[in-house]
């Protein structure tokens, strides 16, 4: 191995598969060097506030081109949530709603969602970490009605949704409530 290649274990560290503590002592310095490199990348950021109005201005100029399909028969109107019927199944009498669940948990290794819609199965609905800031999300299609749920952090900690109403679960914890 040439001198500028990271040890395979250090690469696993960079991949997030192992931690610094898992490295043998002789590789710690190399591991720390690698993490410093990564930390420098992860902290960098770029923002482009002008893009929004530039895009919308460009669309305004194109508006006429879109008139035909703007006037075409539309999908169901959107409110805060969009109710719509899935084509084919379920039947028209069973409206469903798309719901995006979000939890900010920077320290979590895994987050899932358990509730009345999945028989409280803490393995059934994992959330996906969407960025380096620890935002976990899942988007579900749920039948209209009422659902109770909680997030399960690292498979053991039941956490109510901090932004949703909650009720006593009868076991000394809180369930979040979603009324659709």
């Amino acid at each position: 191995m040439s001198g500028h290649e990271f040890h395979p274990l250090v690469k696993q560290l960079l991949d997030g598969d192992i931690t610094l503590a898992d490295l043998p002592a002789e590789l710690r310095a190399e591991g720390e060097e690698a993490l410093r490199l990564l930390a420098r990348v992860a902290r960098t950021d770029v923002t482009m506030p002008a893009v929004t109005w530039r895009v919308m201005a460009a669309l305004e100029r194109r508006r006429r081109r879109f008139l035909p399909w703007l006037l075409a028969p539309a999908l169901a109107a959107a409110a805060v949530l969009v109710l719509w019927l899935r084509p084919g199944s379920p039947p028209p009498s069973a409206p469903v709603v798309t719901v995006r669940f979000v939890l900010v948990a920077p320290e979590a290794r895994q987050v899932s969602l358990a509730g009345t819609f999945n028989q409280w199965d803490s393995h059934a609905t994992p959330l996906v970490r969407t960025g380096p800031t620890g935002v976990w999300t899942a988007t579900l299609t749920l039948p209209a009605g009422q659902h109770q749920y909680a997030f399960v952090v690292d498979g053991v900690r039941w956490v109510p949704d901090p932004g949703a109403p909650a009720v006593d679960d009868g076991f000394g914890r809180r369930n979040s409530v979603l009324t659709l």
Binding site: A114, Q119, W120, D169, G170, F171, R173
Partner: peptide, 14 residues
């Protein structure tokens, strides 16, 4: 409620 309690690992008496 029974399913929820068991899924959460709550003791049966509770």
């Amino acid at each position: 409620k029974a399913i929820e309690g068991s899924a959460k690992g709550v003791p049966p008496d509770r």
